[in-house]
């Protein structure tokens, strides 16, 4: 029986993509109020680990529990809306405006549209709300994704290379969002290859090497 108090509990978890084993024997516990930084070089399995935690990839072995739910059970779908993930590839629809992208997320999640507008203002994109996502810079697109997490207020926030393409003011924004999640009793997992930039935002760190957390 894994701990019910932690947001993430992994015991000897392995994960495969196709026939390639990316993660092996991963042991990781992330408690409420914790912000854990996972560092590792390219190909270490950082993004795969985040996808497993986000329930988007099933573990191939081991015991895994996220937000009190066993990832081997079909119940894992019910916790998805409580998890936020910002990957390093923007997930916006290029043909829609920045505001329309955020409003779409609000409609699906059942959040009020006013919250989408407020979040867009908070991330400094109020003036650019009608710009098409396909014509916005990578940094602006990432700001919209941060706005989405501000609006949805996930209990578990997963950030993949959070500083990628961000200017200094946006870095402060990331710190603000991370602090907000922790204040609400949530947890954050950040993966990065840049220890120095992420260190101020985490309460502890671990290294991911060869698909294993050390």
């Amino acid at each position: 029986m894994l701990s019910a108090n932690a947001h993430v509990v992994f015991r000897r978890v392995a994960a495969r993509i196709g026939v390639t084993t990316i993660l092996r024997d991963v042991n990781l516990t992330v408690r409420a109020g914790e912000s854990v930084g996972l560092f590792g070089s390219n190909g270490a399995g950082k993004t795969t680990l985040l996808r497993v935690i986000a329930t988007l990839l099933r573990p191939s072995a081991g015991e895994a529990q996220v937000l009190g739910t066993d990832l081997g059970s079909s119940d894992r779908f019910s916790i998805r809306s409580r998890i936020g993930l910002i990957g390093h590839s923007p997930a916006l629809y290029p043909e829609l405006s920045l505001a329309a992208n955020l409003e779409f997320s609000a409609r699906i999640a059942g959040a009020p549209l006013a919250a989408a507008n407020d979040a867009l203002e908070t991330v400094g994109l109020g003036q650019a709300r009608d710009r098409l996502a396909g014509e916005a810079s990578h940094g602006m697109q990432r700001r919209v994704e941060f706005a989405r997490e501000l609006m949805l207020q996930p209990e578990l926030l997963l950030l993949d290379e959070p500083h990628s393409a961000l200017d200094p003011s946006a870095v402060e924004l990331v710190e603000h969002i991370v602090a907000g999640v922790l204040d609400r009793g949530g947890a954050v997992v950040l993966v990065s290859h840049d220890v120095d930039r992420v260190a101020p935002m985490v309460t502890r760190t671990a290294e991911l090497t060869g698909g294993t957390v050390r």
């Binding site: 996808r51 986000a54 988007l56 998805r80 809306s81 998890i83 936020g84 993930l85 990957g87 590839s89 923007p90 997930a91 916006l92 629809y93 997320s105 699906i108 999640a109 949805l152």
Partner: peptide
């Protein structure tokens, strides 16, 4: 849809 867009919509709880 890109894989990133599919992941995002799945995590919205659709």
């Amino acid at each position: 849809e890109t894989p990133a867009q599919r992941d995002a919509i799945a995590l919205l709880g659709v």
